[in-house]
């Protein structure tokens, strides 16, 4: 291996200072970064191990009804936090649909948000990739790309963001707390990840040294707990990234959708909030025709980036399914096959 510095700061301020140097990268559990380093994709000159930073591994229920999730909380710990799963069931289901039990035990929520794409050309060092080497070109664009993006992609990059967790989070207006050289700031998760444009190497709006210290869900996110699902189609039942996924959260009163939240995963370089579809749903009856219309609107701007036109059709159907299942009601327990279409029936609501 290439040699690199390894530092383990004890305060956030020290961490930010240590990571503000060129070539430095934060290391949490390393479930993604270490693979990238071994594969020759990333070559950090300094790893700033944040796992010993105090206070970042707690789930705090805030007085206003919101929740603050420390960046070092493990995926599994959050998903199995009973109060969290009751209040934000689609987030827990998404977490448990991701990776494997072993990875979820290790991986942190902050790392989950910042995980890199699974585009094979990004991982394959000899292939051309604008993320790895700006200006090199994109071998995925005319390569083996049946799983690539259908929304928000550019000629420079057609990679997708692979996180399950981020999909319901973005639907529920999650906020990211960032500590940086000039202090603390907050951004909406929806704004954190960037679309590729001409600069796919810039994946987020984080600046050098910026450290995600927490994620927050607002109190309003609890209002969807009775009608919230995450549905993920993948090529095997576990330990596979989404081909396409959807998080649907509804607030239904007297048979009418008062408010809808909808986001898609596996379709774009960021977790994809479908706001136009949400607006159509709000005030409508929760029925199949309305869901199909919402799905059509959600995917209206989609176009294939390669051999992946099926993902558009699939995404529309998953939107309908997720809305249908959300309407039917959040299950009393997270299903044994979290996120799987097989965890729930396919009988439709009227």
């Amino acid at each position: 291996m290439m040699n690199f510095d390894y530092v383990r700061p004890l305060t956030v301020a020290e961490a930010v200072a240590a990571a503000s140097e060129k070539g430095a990268t934060y290391l949490a559990s390393g479930t993604n970064l270490l693979d990238l380093m071994k594969g020759g994709v990333c070559h950090p000159s300094r790893l700033v191990d944040v796992t010993r930073l105090p206070g970042l591994d707690r789930v705090e229920y805030l007085a206003d009804g919101g929740v603050r999730i420390g960046a070092l909380v493990r995926n599994a710990d959050l998903a199995h936090d009973a109060e969290f799963a009751r209040a934000f069931p689609s987030v827990a289901e998404a977490l448990l649909s991701g990776a494997s039990a072993q990875l979820r035990n290790a991986a942190t929520v902050g790392g989950n948000v910042l995980q890199r794409t699974r585009c094979a050309y990004f991982y394959d060092a000899p292939s051309a990739c604008n993320k790895r080497w700006p200006g090199a070109g994109c071998d995925a664009r005319h390569g083996e790309n049946r799983l690539h993006a259908v929304l928000g992609w550019s000629e420079a990059c057609i990679a997708t963001h692979p996180s399950d967790f981020c999909v319901p989070l973005v639907a529920l207006d999650a906020v990211v707390e960032i500590e940086g050289k000039s202090g603390r700031r907050e951004v909406a998760l929806e704004a954190l990840h960037r679309l590729p444009g001409d600069t796919p190497q810039r994946e987020t709006l984080l600046e050098r040294g910026d450290l995600i210290v927490a994620l927050r869900l607002p109190a309003e996110a609890r209002g969807f707990a009775a009608h919230a699902r995450y549905i993920k189609v993948r090529e095997r039942t576990s330990y596979a990234f989404a081909v396409v996924s959807a998080a649907a959260s509804l607030r239904i009163e007297q048979g009418t959708i008062r408010e809808a939240r909808l986001a898609l995963g596996g379709v774009a370089a960021k977790p994809w909030r479908a706001r136009a579809a949400e607006q159509v749903l709000a005030g409508a009856a929760p029925d199949a025709a309305g869901f199909r219309e919402a799905a059509r609107i959600a995917l209206a701007d989609a176009k294939p980036s390669g051999d992946n036109a099926f993902k558009i059709e699939l995404a529309e159907r998953i939107v309908v399914r997720a809305l249908t299942l959300a309407t039917a009601g959040t299950p009393a327990r997270i299903p044994a096959l979290p996120g799987s279409p097989f965890s729930s029936g396919v009988r439709h609501v009227a």
């Binding site: 094979a120 050309y121 000899p126 390569g143 083996e144 576990s238 330990y239």
Partner: peptide
């Protein structure tokens, strides 16, 4: 095994992406 039709390189030469059934399958 997914092979790039231009380079002849196998793109999923790892156990995360070269899918075999997991227990749940």
């Amino acid at each position: 095994a997914v092979m790039d039709h231009r380079s002849g390189r196998i793109l999923n030469a790892n156990l995360a992406e070269y899918h075999i059934p997991v227990n749940a399958d």
